Simulated scan of single mutants.
Amino acid sequence: MNPRKRRFLAAAGCLFATLIGGNAVAQNAAQGLEKQKVSIAVGGKNLFYYLPLTIAEQLGYFKEEGLQVEISDFAGGSKALQAMIGGSADVVSGAFEHTIDMQAKNQFITAFVLQGRAPQIVFGVSNKTMPNYKSITDLKGKKIGVTAPGSSTNIVANFVLAKGGLKPSDVSFIGVGTAAGALSALRSGQIDAISNLDPVITMMQHDKEIRIIADTRTLKDTQELFGGPMPAATLYAPEAFIKKNPRTTQALTNAMVKALKWLQKAGPSDIVKVVPESYQLGDKALYLEAFSHVREALSPDGMIPEAGPATALKTLQAFEPQLAGKKIDLARTYTNEFVKHANASTK
């Protein structure tokens, strides 16, 4: 046998062994899981808000943990929550605030890994329909675009309005989604203001289509708006699911923490290679510019800050009358136990 053929066969043998070994690891991991097939609902998977979920999926981190994850994408976080409540999803990749809102309705759901330590949501006024905007009160009677009514973009908009003296009922909220629909609604004049996320916000900024009123893409701006740390995207599930499937929950957390740690080291070229091209809205350079705006907002380790749940509750109480007088057990809205184990075993 000539040396070249011998080297080729040796290399092929090593590759085969690696593939077999990887499958064996995943199979061994799967054997210890209570539930191997897990369905995750998300509201706007193309958003940087949920970038860690996309990374975990695209780089095979869920598979490494022995999981078969099916991700269903919805127009907004409230729709993803409805899917879980209705039984068509096991877990939601969604905003932390929903754990508080649902507890107020006597439904206990728990966030178990943090994706974002700042909401990344931007509230802006249309330069087309409101060129003479001066204050929040100018928005009375106007139409505000959100990803979906009841979603985190709606919640942040409500809070911004409340700080300016308006109630949610003083405006009309319209669901516009998170991509082309949001751009179209603003550009056609269907909405007067928008509460949305990157990359669409950076595209609107770039074309000078909006005037930014509130920005939560950095820790500093988030602290100033909410008065404390504000947990954003999480993975959350019904309390009963987590109790019944602790090893499955741990596997999901392990995959997400791997994704978060990968993102801490990744460069722009790494991001565009992994993220589906359709998420980049036809402009790779602008997509990377948008990523630079939100990078700081991504959690480095998946830990929910101890003061974060109280900030979220205070924010919701500013405009949600149904929370008045309601006793919320914040300790049941989140847990860091799975994240602690994941960080101990993931470099």
Rank of each mutant, 00 (worst) to 15 (best):
I328G: 12
F241L: 08
R295N: 14
Y287R: 01
P268W: 04
V200C: 08
M1D: 10
H206L: 13
L59T: 07
S88N: 14
D270I: 03
R332I: 06
D198V: 06
L219K: 07
F291C: 12
A41P: 07
V294R: 05
S188D: 12
P246K: 10
A297P: 06
A29N: 05
Q322P: 05
T311P: 04
T249F: 00
K163P: 07
V156Y: 01
Y50E: 12
T129A: 06
A157R: 01
K220H: 03
K258D: 02
M102A: 09
N154E: 12
H98I: 00
K163I: 02
F319P: 11
T218L: 12
Y61N: 14
G76Y: 01
A307Q: 10
V171G: 08
V113N: 04
T311K: 04
I100H: 13
T54K: 07
Q280W: 08
P168G: 11
K142A: 04
I136E: 00
T178G: 14
T346H: 07
S188L: 14
E289V: 04
L263N: 00
A118T: 01
A180G: 10
E97K: 01
Q68V: 15
A30S: 11
V38D: 02
T234L: 12
F338T: 15
Q205W: 04
R332W: 14
H341W: 02
A285K: 08
T253C: 08
K5F: 12
Q120T: 13
K327R: 09
A182E: 08
A307E: 09
F112L: 12
A193S: 09
G43V: 02
L313E: 15
Y61G: 14
S269G: 09
A318E: 06
T249Q: 01
G116W: 05
M1G: 10
V91I: 12
Y133C: 00
